[in-house]
Simulated scan of single mutants.
Amino acid sequence: MTNHNWLVTDDGNRGAFGNPDTPEPGRYYRLYRFLTELEDILDIFHDDVSRLEAITPLVRKLLVSSYWLQLEYHPPDPSTGWSVNFLYREHQFPITVQMVAWLPGHTSTIHNHGAWGIVALVGGQERHRLWRRAPAPSYPDRLELADEVILNPGDVVALTANAIHSVEPLGDEPTVSFNLYGATDFRDRYEFDVQNQTAKPF
């Protein structure tokens, strides 16, 4: 099966980017080395797209080399339908690394992250619906559906800070993803209600 890299921008547009081939494991690539190289990238590149293009190959390298990461998830909570296991957060370093699992039959809210993000699917299959802002005089937070993409294991979707999406697990098995975000507090994250055309902090 062919892997894909998808870049989703603030306007809901989706495009392929970079080399989606899975690298050979080679030398063991540890999380601390990944974080060090990530910090170097953040010092060099200052826009979301350049950062995402530079970081995505490192995410692929990490997941191929560090198999233990793929097992570092919690079973989804039946009451919420999802779980999050934080692998890395550090005060005053704007990076969050986590494993997220979803139960079939549950769908996330429609939301942005207020920071660039990378979702690499490890197990299962997910539909990501992509939205764009379409404000109207009476509804400044109105959205319209722009696109959707189905992720299989090995696929990566990279999101700019104000890209808006929702996540729906497909099939009968829980989905598991490696999620990386350029924030720790998510103060600019919002969830959207398309029925009432409203938004609120998330």
Rank of each mutant, 00 (worst) to 15 (best):
L159N: 04
P153L: 07
N85I: 09
S177C: 14
H46C: 06
D188H: 15
R129T: 15
N112C: 05
N5I: 00
L42W: 11
P140E: 01
N196V: 10
N5S: 09
P140W: 09
Q195H: 14
H128P: 04
P104A: 03
L62S: 03
P137T: 08
Q70E: 07
Y190R: 14
Y28S: 11
Q195E: 15
A16M: 04
D40E: 15
R129I: 07
D155W: 03
D188E: 15
E39R: 12
Q197P: 06
N13K: 11
E144G: 03
N5T: 03
T56L: 01
L159E: 00
F34N: 04
A161E: 08
H128V: 06
H46I: 12
N5W: 00
D47C: 13
L103D: 05
E168D: 11
G117W: 02
R60Q: 10
V156K: 07
H91P: 09
D172W: 12
Y181Q: 01
P75A: 12
D77I: 05
Y29W: 13
D47P: 04
H91Q: 15
S177T: 12
D10C: 08
L62Y: 10
V156P: 00
T36S: 13
H46F: 14
T96D: 00
L7V: 02
L52G: 00
L121K: 02
R189A: 13
I150V: 14
N162G: 12
Y28G: 04
N13S: 15
G26R: 03
D48T: 01
R60P: 04
A199E: 14
D77W: 05
R142T: 07
L31Q: 04
Y73W: 10
Q98N: 10
D21F: 11
L71N: 06
G26D: 05
M1R: 08
V97S: 07
A161T: 10
Y181C: 00
A120G: 02
T96G: 06
T160F: 01
D193H: 05
Y29T: 00
V122D: 07
L180T: 09
E148L: 05
A16I: 04
Q125R: 14
L7H: 07
S166R: 05
Q195L: 14
M99Y: 02
M1D: 08
Q98A: 15
F93V: 13
E144N: 03
D43E: 15
P153W: 08
D185M: 12
D21G: 06
D40R: 13
F93P: 05
D141F: 13
E173L: 15
D188A: 11
L35P: 11
K61Y: 11
G171R: 15
N85A: 07
D40S: 12
H165V: 06
P57N: 03
Y29H: 07
L7T: 00
E37L: 13
S79H: 09
N19A: 10
V8D: 00
V167G: 01
R129C: 08
F192N: 01
A199V: 02
N5K: 00
N85C: 10
I55C: 08
P135I: 02
Y88P: 01
R51Q: 14
M99L: 15
A115W: 01
N196D: 15
E168V: 13
F17G: 05
N19M: 02
P201R: 15
V59C: 09
P104Y: 06
L159V: 06
P23C: 08
R189K: 10
D147M: 06
L42V: 01
A183W: 03
N5F: 06
G123K: 14
D172H: 15
V84T: 08
T184V: 14
I41A: 10
N3I: 01
P25G: 01
